[in-house]
Design a protein around this nucleic acid. Structure first.
Length: 163
DNA sequence: GCCAACGTTGGC
DNA sequence: GCCAACGTTGGC
């Protein structure tokens, strides 16, 4: 299994919104960047992802989700009323992908970007703390996964290593 | 609201 | 294929 980080603007979709969703599952759709899409396609059922709130105060990691359905066509690309509509994507030749994720846990205290930055030395090449990385889907290494849980004061989810 | 970073587009 | 213009992201 692999680890990931998923960004979302809480105004658009927050971890609390996921908590209220049926079965606490959502389609992670609307990704319109090829590199991020390719990461989505590399996800497997059981992979875990940090849920990151961007464009808010403070930005930071707020919990963990689990991939419950691997990449499949992002049907919002076919919907002319969707803000993610992309007429280049057809049902015959889909361009964009989505995965389904389910809430694993909400952290009582989020881990702010500011705090993450203060641990840049131990997090190494963690993409979030590198300037200018705007990808909404990013890989996280196992050591970064553990380090982030340690910084957050959250025990590494036992689910993380049971698969 | 500003603006740096960076992906995408499109003229050539 | 190059690269300038443009649009978006997202922290501040």
């Amino acid at each position: 299994m692999q680890f990931w980080l998923l960004k979302s603007e809480p105004v658009t979709f927050s971890i609390e919104a996921l908590q209220r969703a049926p079965q606490q599952i959502t389609h992670w759709d609307g990704v319109r960047n090829y590199q991020a899409r390719n990461y989505l396609r590399n996800m497997q059922v059981g992979d875990l992802a940090l849920f990151y709130h961007s464009n808010c105060t403070p930005p930071g990691i707020v919990g963990v989700v689990r991939v419950v359905k691997a990449a499949h066509s992002d049907d919002t690309a076919w919907d002319p009323t969707s803000e993610h509509y992309d007429p280049r994507s057809t049902k015959e030749v889909p361009i964009w992908s989505q995965v389904d994720v389910q809430l694993v846990e909400i952290w009582k205290e989020g881990l702010s970007l500011e705090t993450l930055k203060s641990h840049a030395d131990t997090l190494g090449e963690f993409p979030l703390v590198r300037r200018g990385n705007r990808l909404s889907v990013m890989p996280v290494t196992p050591s970064q996964w553990e380090e982030i849980h340690a910084i957050a004061g959250v025990s590494v989810s036992k689910k993380a290593f049971s698969d």
